[in-house]
Computed example of a mutant assay.
Amino acid sequence: MKVANGVEVIELKIDAMGNEIVLHPTLVFDNEISILIDTGIPGQLHEIKGAMAKADVSFQSLIGIILTHQDIDHIGSAPQLLEEFNKPMLVYAHKEDQPYIEGDVPLIKTDISRMSKQELDALPNEVRYLYNNPPSVKVNKLLKDNQVLPYCGGIEVIYTPGHSPGHVSLYLKKTKTLVAGDAMVKMNGRLWGPVKQTTLDMKAATQSLEKLLDYDIETVICYHGGVFKGNPRPYILEILSEIV
């Protein structure tokens, strides 16, 4: 789905325990290079390559992956992407999520050692296998708050912790587009705050949204929910007003 010149949202469908969920990685590109923000779940390399071809973006133009945070559905197909390449690839993430992404410590939300036997028994076999064998990649470029990556008109890093310790959102300066990761979701045509059930620190995650008020945003891309066109400010203010 084309969002603006040089910004494409990839729609990746997954079956989550009988329910279809659509994930929305973002492809940012120009005439020379491309950057992929998040990578779906493991095994979706074919879909990613197909979406890039449909957008008329060469797979070989990909120079880097930005991971907004450590969750399985964001790290996902990054290992397969790196294996597919015949040249070095930049992998960006925040230092707070780096050890989880690299597999040095278990992913916080899917650490089976923290689950009860009842919780484990309730997991489908394929999900249990994934939790036992989560994807991991080496992070070779660390992201910092307010850092601007010099690609495609500038990609500014906004540190938005709470959903995970190292969650980041990204502001695409050229198109005034916010890639929100899981900092917000789109549902029923509007924006909502982070999902409580999957957010480690709900208060911190909500407070992080205050940073977004400093940006001139015309489009928001939510990993869950897709593209929101318009000014997000009224929704962000509403979400912030509900902090207890």
Rank of each mutant, 00 (worst) to 15 (best):
S113H: 13
E102A: 06
E96T: 02
K87S: 14
T110Q: 13
Y92A: 09
K95D: 15
L90Y: 11
K109W: 11
L82H: 04
K95Y: 14
P79F: 11
E84L: 08
Y100Q: 10
D111N: 05
E96H: 02
K95P: 09
G76K: 03
Q80V: 07
K109D: 14
E84R: 04
P88S: 10
A93R: 03
P88C: 08
L81C: 04
F85Q: 01
I108M: 00
A78V: 11
K87W: 13
A93W: 00
E102P: 06
V105Q: 05
F85T: 04
L90W: 13
Q80Y: 13
V105D: 07
M89Y: 02
L82P: 02
E102V: 08
F85Y: 02
H94A: 09
L81S: 06
D111T: 02
D97C: 12
I112S: 12
Q80F: 13
G103D: 05
H94T: 09
P79R: 09
K109G: 10
I112L: 15
K87V: 12
H94W: 08
S77E: 00
K87C: 11
L82A: 05
S113Q: 11
L107T: 04
R114S: 12
T110H: 12
E84S: 09
E102C: 06
N86D: 15
D104Q: 13
I108E: 04
N86Y: 13
E102D: 12
P99Y: 04
D97M: 14
E83C: 01
D97F: 08
V91F: 05
E96W: 01
F85D: 00
G103K: 01
E96D: 06
R114F: 08
A93C: 01
D104C: 09
K109I: 10
H94Q: 09
I75D: 02
L90T: 06
S113W: 07
N86L: 11
N86W: 12
N86K: 11
K87Y: 15
A93D: 03
G103I: 08
Y100E: 10
P106L: 01
T110W: 14
K87I: 11
L90A: 12
E84A: 10
H94C: 08
A78E: 06
Q98N: 10
I101W: 01
P99H: 01
I108P: 03
A93E: 04
S77G: 03
R114D: 08
L82T: 02
P106A: 01
L90C: 11
T110V: 14
E83S: 02
V91M: 07
G103R: 03
M115F: 15
E96N: 03
K95L: 14
A93K: 02
L82E: 12
M115Q: 15
D97K: 08
D104W: 09
L81V: 12
Q80E: 15
N86I: 07
E102N: 07
R114V: 09
A78M: 05
R114K: 15
Q98W: 08
V91P: 09
I75H: 00
